[in-house]
């Protein structure tokens, strides 16, 4: 198969667009997936906990 410049460009443009949309949908779904809610909330708060030592399963809150 002979790949000429224009088909490379066409491929790049069409798949680039498709990819952009797919990614946007994927990320939004991930961010709003109900099952992830608890992790995110915990992550967001946990950095404010005491953090003087490694390990120590924090008491959550």
């Amino acid at each position: 198969m002979d790949i000429d410049h224009y088909s490379v460009v066409a491929f790049a443009k069409s798949w680039g667009l498709f990819y952009l949309i797919a990614l946007a949908v994927g990320v939004t779904v991930y961010a709003f997936w109900p099952g992830n809610r608890k992790r995110f909330d915990r992550a967001k708060k946990s950095i404010l906990d005491k953090d003087d030592r490694p390990g120590g399963e924090n008491d959550g809150n």
Binding site: L23, V27, T28, Y30, A31, F32, F40, D41, A43, K44, K45, I47, L48
Partner: peptide, 22 residues
Amino acid sequence: YYLPKRAERPIFSYRLSIISFW
């Protein structure tokens, strides 16, 4: 990390930070 730490407030929206990351 340092902004929420210093302000002692969690980041406003964790989801938004994920979306803007990607």
